[in-house]
């Protein structure tokens, strides 16, 4: 880093505006491209997909940024520490222990609620010990998280092997939705949950800013650190549940979105960085979906493209400048 570089007067508001325009343009393009006259059918259908993409983008962006604030590290995401595979594991466990017939007959909203609750409780238990203590060894946290991720994934696939394969395939569609067949009820519930979480978080935006200074400085400035971190972890757990329920685990997307957002609006202020991240996520997902549908003609899974592009961007970023 050159020492003679002076601080550029950042104009995050303008950047946010541009991002907003881009997101809107992508959304409009997504809705209107190649409609071919069948407005009655296409608009609601695409609207639902668009809503899913925006909601997922928002959930991933906000959860990742908050998680990085708590951990004080730009290369960690809830996904890298196994949060979203925890969700998959919880789903699999429910299926395994309750039996598929019970699960199918349950109200999906109730099921989702139960899953989110378990998720919050579990993530609290699992990560409290890692982030709550005074002595935080970041390497240990990272490694433990990555290993936990593998554990969750292997345990899920272990249990999935124990479930009758035919039954599992039948249920798989239900469990691992994608942008293309969003469940309307689930979408509404997710939206409400996300809204609730956002209202809760909105009141604490300035406290989040203080956390950026690190645990000790935050305590010095009078922030109830343990309570705030606990609350953020709960918010993160809920948001990860939302995004995982809607599209399944997406490992690097959060990393990509958060780092891009930090790169375009260089600020510590959550009131700016959170919307920026959400908008970046919206642009990436919606534009990606447009490309997917009209260039690749649906011939692949959106996750594949996200991982590919996200991974490349991340590596390039690391090579130019180490994050953090």
């Amino acid at each position: 880093m050159s020492a003679d570089r002076v601080a550029v007067p950042a104009r995050p508001e303008r950047t946010l505006f541009i991002l907003g325009c881009m997101a809107t343009a992508c959304a409009v393009l997504f809705m209107l491209i190649d409609v071919g006259g069948q407005w009655d059918f296409v608009l609601p259908f695409r609207g639902k997909k668009l809503a899913t993409a925006l909601l997922v983008g928002y959930a991933i962006a906000v959860s990742t940024v908050l998680f990085q604030t708590v951990t004080g590290n730009r290369v960690l995401t809830p996904a890298i520490l196994g949060f979203d595979y925890l969700y998959v594991l919880i789903q699999t466990c429910l299926l395994f222990f309750l039996g598929s017939s019970t699960v199918v007959n349950l109200d999906p909203r109730l099921l989702f609620g139960v899953e989110v609750l378990i998720m919050v409780a579990f993530s609290g238990l699992l990560y409290w010990g890692l982030f709550g203590g005074a002595r935080r060894n970041l390497h240990l946290v990272l490694l433990t998280g990555v290993v936990l991720g593998v554990l969750f994934r292997s345990l899920s696939s272990f249990l999935q092997r124990l479930i009758d394969p035919n039954e599992f395939i039948f249920l798989q569609d239900r469990f691992f939705a994608s942008f293309n067949n969003p469940d309307q009820e689930l979408l509404v519930v997710s939206f409400l949950v996300t809204l609730g979480v956002s209202v809760l978080g909105f009141r604490m935006l300035r406290t989040f800013d203080v956390l950026v200074l690190g645990r000790e400085t935050a305590i010095n400035l009078g922030v109830d650190y343990q309570r705030t971190v606990a609350l953020i972890l709960v918010l993160v757990a809920i948001l990860v549940s939302v995004s995982s329920a809607l599209v399944g685990p997406v490992t690097f997307f959060g990393l990509l979105v958060s780092n891009l957002a930090h790169a375009v609006v260089r600020t510590y202020k959550h009131e700016l960085i959170l919307p920026a991240a959400a908008l970046v996520a919206a642009v990436a997902l919606v534009a990606g979906q447009v490309v997917l549908e009209h260039v690749f003609a649906f011939d692949t899974n959106p996750r594949v493209i996200i991982e590919f592009v996200g991974g490349l961007v991340f590596i390039t970023m690391l090579m130019r400048k180490a994050p953090g």
Partner: peptide
């Protein structure tokens, strides 16, 4: 005191 975010001196002091 190690920070992950980019803060200016004035922003830090304001905290």
């Amino acid at each position: 005191n190690h920070l992950t975010s980019r803060l200016t001196v004035r922003e830090l002091v304001t905290f």
